[in-house]
Every structure is written in C-alpha cells, then in structure tokens.
Computed example of a mutant assay.
Amino acid sequence: MVAGGGRTGEAGEVGEAGRSEEISAWRPEVKGVTEVFHAHFTRHSYPMHVHDTWTLLIVDEGAVRYDLERHAHGTPLGTVSLLPPHVPHNGSAATPHGFRKRVLYLDAGGGPLDASFIGAAVDSPDLVDPLLRDRISRLHSCLVRPGDELEAAARLALVGERLRERLRPRLAEESRRGPDRRVAVALRELLDARVVEGVELSEAAGLVHAHPAHMVRSFGAAYGIAPHQYLMARRVDRARRLLLDGRAPGEVAAACGFYDQSHLTRHFKRVVGTPPGRYARGR
C-alpha cells in the first residue's frame, strides 16, 4: 500500500490454470477509504486474520469461501460481502481457477459505517443487492482515475447509504426523504466559488449542513447533474477560454484545477468532443 494516492502492482507465481496471480493496491485521496486492493489469486488462501477496517468485497471472476465467527460463507458472482472490523475471518478460492476480486478497506472511525453496525454485518455479511454492487463497481472505476476524488467521495456516500439501509432496514425509509432545494442551491454556490481549488465532499456537507448522500441526491434532483460533473463542466468552460487565449494545455490544466494534463484531456474531450490541443489549434 502506498500513501498519497500511489499504486503498486505485481505479478506472483503462475497458478494451476496457467494465469499469473496479480495484485494492485493503493491508498486514494478519498476520506473514509484506507486502501483499495485488486487481486487475482489462483492458489493463495488467507489464514484466519483480522482488520481494523471494514472490508467491502466484490468478486468479478470465480468465487470465494470464508469463515466468519465460525460460520461458513461464500461470495458467488453478484454478491457483496461486508466483513466487520476486529472479527476474525479467512478466505480461499471456491473454484479450481481461483478468483478475481476488488476490495475497499473502509475506515472504521471515519468511514460510512460505525461500530453499531458490526453485529448486523456478522449476522449477514453477504448481500445479494444488484444496486449496491453496481455502486461499488462504479466507485472502483472512479478510484483508479487520479483527480476525480470528488466523484469518488460522492459515490462512496451513496454506497454507505445503501449499506446502512441493508444492515438496518428501518433506515431505508429515512433515506427516501425528498430532495432539498436549499441544500442544492447552497452546494452549487459553494462549487461556483471554488471552481479551481475544489472542495471535499465532507467539508461541503458540513458547510451546507446536510448528510453527504442527501446533499448529492438533492443536487442531482435539482439540476439533473451530479456535483462532480457540474464542477468539471465549470472547469472545462474556464479551460476553453484560456486555450483560446493561446495558453498551453499543460498550463491550462493547472490553472483550472485539473490533476494534470491527461485529467484535463479526459474531461475536456467528454464535454467538448475534441482534445484541448486540437481545440486550441482551431482558433
């Protein structure tokens, strides 16, 4: 695991199916996520061990079997597994060809779940929930892209909301509160004031006095666009003006709040339909 958003990747020994074992791990700049871990294992079996974090696991190929509190569990394709902190568990492949998994380790103190959910997670660690799995998968896709931390934080808030609903069903009704126009307007004004420097989701929630998931949902309902998309659109709009002024794409990326030039190019092309360099040459 590498601090500061770095990534490590390595290939291990070749498994029985002739496919090398692969590992990629990093710590994103997203509050509440202590580690992202992607792996393909063919032979490795985890001994009994514990984490001081919540372990949120999805399997993309194969299946995993594990013991938690002396009860056997499994993760067939489509299942979301949530293993609570400080509870011993093991893990091994449930198929001859191993498994490919994506894991989020969530801070037990500052993440979306607190200790009050541990008992419910021990009782029902495997959740068959297509919506939850899709949200987790989209969060993983976002976490591999440096510079999209606001989107990742928003997606994590929605994942946390769904987990709390599943672990405590009575929370589902509370989470279905209608959109709050006041919250949406306040967040838009905050984003407008911080186009370049940006804002963390947790800070924004504190400033507009709303839960992060409720804030994201209210903004989308009010404006038909997610907060991170709104912010990136504002940055792209500013980048267009600077490019037409003759400034280089690399300089424009830094001036508009993008992580780097490739981050600018990805969002600029999605919004404008052409890379920033080609756009500038058409002046």
Score class of each variant (00 low, 15 high):
residue 121 A to H: 04
residue 187 L to G: 06
residue 250 G to M: 02
residue 208 V to K: 07
residue 269 K to V: 03
residue 153 A to I: 04
residue 168 R to F: 07
residue 131 L to A: 05
residue 200 E to G: 15
residue 92 S to Q: 13
residue 132 L to Q: 05
residue 87 V to A: 03
residue 278 R to K: 10
residue 169 P to R: 05
residue 71 H to W: 06
residue 225 I to M: 15
residue 125 P to G: 04
residue 98 G to F: 02
residue 192 D to C: 12
residue 271 V to I: 14
residue 152 A to V: 07
residue 148 D to H: 06
residue 253 A to K: 13
residue 169 P to V: 02
residue 107 D to C: 15
residue 114 D to P: 06
residue 156 L to V: 04
residue 24 S to R: 12
residue 56 L to C: 10
residue 17 A to G: 03
residue 12 G to F: 11
residue 188 R to P: 04
residue 185 V to D: 11
residue 188 R to W: 08
residue 123 D to F: 02
residue 219 F to Y: 07
residue 23 I to R: 02
residue 274 T to C: 07
residue 78 G to A: 12
residue 123 D to V: 08
residue 133 R to G: 11
residue 241 R to A: 14
residue 59 V to Y: 04
residue 107 D to N: 15
residue 232 M to R: 15
residue 51 H to C: 00
residue 22 E to Q: 08
residue 8 T to H: 09
residue 28 P to T: 07
residue 54 W to M: 05
residue 41 F to G: 00
residue 55 T to C: 08
residue 119 G to L: 01
residue 106 L to F: 12
residue 242 L to K: 15
residue 282 G to D: 04
residue 51 H to F: 03
residue 61 E to W: 01
residue 147 G to N: 08
residue 232 M to W: 03
residue 148 D to A: 01
residue 208 V to N: 08
residue 57 L to A: 06
residue 105 Y to L: 12
residue 98 G to A: 06
residue 270 R to Y: 02
residue 73 H to Y: 15
residue 238 R to N: 01
residue 224 G to T: 06
residue 111 G to F: 09
residue 260 D to K: 02
residue 248 A to S: 12
residue 259 Y to R: 15
residue 14 V to T: 15
residue 179 P to Q: 10
residue 234 R to T: 00
residue 40 H to P: 00
residue 72 A to R: 14
residue 206 G to A: 08
residue 131 L to M: 07
residue 274 T to Y: 05
residue 45 S to D: 10
residue 57 L to P: 03
residue 197 E to V: 05
residue 247 R to W: 13
residue 101 K to D: 09
residue 79 T to E: 12
residue 71 H to R: 15
residue 145 R to D: 11
residue 273 G to K: 07
residue 140 H to S: 03
residue 37 F to I: 01
residue 82 L to C: 10
residue 260 D to S: 09
residue 9 G to A: 13
residue 59 V to M: 01
residue 27 R to E: 11
residue 53 T to L: 09
residue 32 G to F: 06
residue 47 P to F: 10
residue 147 G to Y: 09
residue 273 G to L: 10
residue 240 R to W: 03
residue 135 R to V: 05
residue 271 V to F: 14
residue 279 Y to R: 04
residue 219 F to D: 13
residue 185 V to R: 08
residue 135 R to F: 05
residue 45 S to L: 00
residue 79 T to I: 13
residue 242 L to V: 09
residue 266 R to A: 13
residue 184 A to T: 09
residue 161 E to C: 10
residue 75 T to G: 00
residue 283 R to N: 08
residue 3 A to D: 10
residue 134 D to S: 07
residue 229 Q to I: 02
residue 178 G to F: 00
residue 99 F to M: 00
residue 150 L to E: 06
residue 169 P to M: 01
residue 103 V to S: 13
residue 51 H to T: 10
residue 96 P to T: 14
residue 93 A to D: 01
residue 32 G to I: 14
residue 99 F to V: 01
residue 85 P to F: 03
residue 122 V to F: 01
residue 236 V to E: 11
residue 41 F to H: 01
residue 79 T to N: 11
residue 103 V to Q: 13
residue 202 S to D: 14
